[in-house]
Every structure is written in C-alpha cells, then in structure tokens.
Design a protein around this nucleic acid. Structure first.
Lengths: 216, 216
DNA sequence: TGCCTTGGCATTGTATACAAATGTTCTGGG
DNA sequence: CCCAGAACATTTGTATACAATGCCAAGGCA
C-alpha cells in the first residue's frame, strides 16, 4: 500500500521556499501569485501568510507583505536571545535528559565527524543536534521559543558553517557540550552552549563583513 | 473632525475575550458563533484563530479549536522560561536603558504605591512596569518573545497579585530591580528580576493548591 | 518645467457558497 | 437491553465572487 504524498500545507510550502532562498528578504509576496504557484486558492495562502507574519518572518510594507530582513542590529539582538535560550536548554538538558537522550547526542557528535566535507549535510545535522538538545530540556515552552528563533535564522543567507575551519571548531564545541551534559553539569553545559553560539556569531560577523560589495 | 472608533480586528477581540475570561481554557471556539458575535464573516475569524493557534493560546482537539490550558507541568515550564527571559531583559536594561527610561521606571514604582488597594489597577500597572523593562532592553526579539510569554499567561485564571500581602512584596521587589538598573549593575538587575519571578511563581503555586475543590 | 489632481488598475480584505469530514442520533436487529 | 450501522446535522476547509483601498501614471494647471 502506497502512502499518499504528505501533501504539505501552504504554510510549510512558503516557509520552505523562504528557507531555500526562493524568496529573499525584501521580496514581495503576492497572494494570487502564490496561490497559482502552489495550485490552491488564496484562502489557505492568506492563512499561511498571516502565520508567517505573526512569527516575524514576513513584515508589512504599506499594504503588502515582504520577506523580513535582518539588519546588523537585529542580527545582534537575535544572537543575544538565542545564546540565552540555547544556554538554558543545555542547562535543563543536563538536569532532565534521559540516559537515552544523552546517548543520542553522543552518537550525533560521533556520526557528524564524517560530514565535515559536505556543508549542506553539516547544516542539516547541526540543526538536528540543536533540536535534540532543545527536546532534551523537556520544556515545551522553551522548545517553542527556540523554534521561533531558528525560524528567524532562515532569513540569513548563509550558514556560519560556510567559514573555513568552522565545521571542525563547531564539532569540537558540540563535543564539549555533550560532555558537560553527560557529566550532568548544568552550569558547564549552559556555559558551553552560550560560548558555542557566541563563536558562531563571531564567525557570522566575519563572514558578513568579508563579503563582496565592500564599503565604498 | 471625529475619529472613528479604533474598530479592533477579530484577533484583538478574541484575545480580549480570552483575557477577560469570557472563554476559559477548554472552551471550544466555533467559527460561525464568533463570526456572528462580532458581526463579521468567518474569514477574518479564521485568520485570527490561526494566529492565536500559532501562539499556542488555542490548541486543536480533533478538528476543532479549544482554548489551551496549562497543566501543572506546563506552568512550571512557562515560569522557567519567563524567569530567564525577564532576567535577560533586566540585565540588558541595566546596560542599555536611557536615563529617561530609567526615570520612567522609578516613577512607576513610586506611583504604583498608591494602587495597593485595587487589584485590577495593580495588575495593569504591573504589566506596564514589566513591559517598560522589556522595552528598555532595546532588544526587539526579546520584546517579542516576552510578549508571547505574557500572552500565554492570560490562560491563568487569577493574577498572583491576588494573594494576601503580595502587592507589598511585589512593589518592594520592583524597587530593588529599578535600584539595580539605576546603578547600572546588570548582574544584580537580572538576578533581582529572576528572584521576583520566582517569588511570583511560589505565590501562584500556593494560590492554586489552596483553591476550592480540594483533593478528596 | 514641476507639482498636484484624478482616474484606472492591481492587490488586498470580506463575504458567501459549496464540498468534505466528523460526530451524533435514531432505528433495527441480535 | 445493548450494540451496530446508517442517515443526518454540524462544523471545518476551500474556492470564488465582490468590495474597497492604496498605488501609479498620465494629464492639466500653475
């Protein structure tokens, strides 16, 4: 028996399109265009757009919706909040994760060593790793808040894993985080994750400043 | 020239109804009922409901939407996240608030002394106080996240300010928080706000356990 | 030549009609 | 008397038609 294709809803489809870069920050989203593109009527499209707007992935420009963009300040603000929440997640994970969950984290760190060459796979694995820590916190609100944070990160063009040598560093940091969780050292785990995010932020800033289109 | 009544949208109307307790946790929200009640068609109602659902104020029960309810665990989870985020806000406020913003906070603490007798006014003043701290952090993402947290708190029937002696304690704690911000002591401010939330949580737990409908 | 006005057009906001799905009640058989 | 099944009613999901609003361009007037 064949399982029907998951038949994603409009929300997921649009979100995916933003994730893939089909729609870039600043692009205008026209309801009728999207409706035609996805083969549904405007009604479900509108509902999806409103959801994305409440999550700040879209923003209003006059009457129409455009993909939100992050200026330098907003980027900094986002990373501050992310560091705090991810740190909290690691702290809670150290205290509340089951042995099995910790084991999964450890396995991930081992397995991801093999992906160092493939940036796309690395990025996906990285997301799964962080998600697993979120879940291990056993705090549903925190998971939800972190989901929001990560969704906003879709507005950034590139992953910080694109930087030279960053995959190696990131994996070493992941290892340190998992070690702290294994030791059930909540403080150390939180601190390790905060440091991890901080380094990712530094990397991103370097990437952004080094990009083409220099300052006059 | 008369200004037309603000003409709130469906989203605000439903949110307000939940806030006022018109719809209580567990209540089912039927689109056509709401449409008739607010004198609009189902379309804007649906959009409002979807927004509320993405904010977890509504949840699905089968196919229909009901007002979300917080069990004991979720309450605890919410307070953990709230303490962390509010603490971060106070920390940032101590560092980034303008002199004028600090002054507003100080004035609020002074003025709110007069409201101790009126629980409703106290609750409103309390919200404004916390909101002012959020804004003083000058971090838009943080403000947004805290908005979400506070919206979820609408699902709790009573405010912790309803407890005997709580208004006095709360005001003293507010004073301590503002003092730390005035001194630009970020660590102390964050800690003071975390302690404030922690005490509010303790109060709430006592309130909840003391309610009618005892344990057989 | 430049600015303001006006008209048309594109796009969003709202309502309504229709289809699909789920829960409910009534009836008949065991 | 209880259970099963089917018809029915209620409610959500989707499409489409219509209204209203804001934007842009073209033309006229200063």
């Amino acid at each position: 028996m064949t399982i029907a294709a998951p038949q994603k809803d409009a929300y997921s489809l649009i979100l995916e399109a933003i994730d893939m870069g089909t729609y870039k920050p600043g692009d205008r989203l026209v309801e009728s265009d999207l409706a035609e593109r996805f083969g549904v009527s405007r009604t479900p499209i509108r509902e999806a757009l409103q959801r994305l707007e409440t999550q700040s992935l879209l923003t209003r420009d006059g009457r129409s919706l455009i993909v939100a963009s992050l200026d330098h300040n907003q980027l900094a603000e986002l990373y501050v909040v992310r560091a705090e929440l991810e740190g909290l997640a690691a702290n809670l994970a150290a205290r509340h994760a089951t042995e099995e969950e910790v084991r999964v984290l450890r396995d991930m760190v081992e397995d991801d060593q093999k992906l160092k060459g493939d940036p796309t796979a690395m990025a996906r694995a990285n997301r799964r790793f962080h998600k697993q820590i979120h879940l291990a916190s056993h705090n549903r609100f925190l998971v939800q808040q972190l989901d929001l944070v990560h969704r906003s990160m879709a507005l950034m063009a590139t992953t910080s894993l694109a930087a030279d040598g960053r995959p190696e560093d990131a994996l070493a940091e992941h290892d340190a985080i998992v070690s702290a969780i294994e030791a059930r050292d909540a403080e150390a785990a939180g601190e390790a994750l905060r440091a991890h995010i901080s380094k990712a932020f530094v990397t991103r800033l370097k990437l952004d400043s080094g990009e083409l289109g220099s300052v006059s």
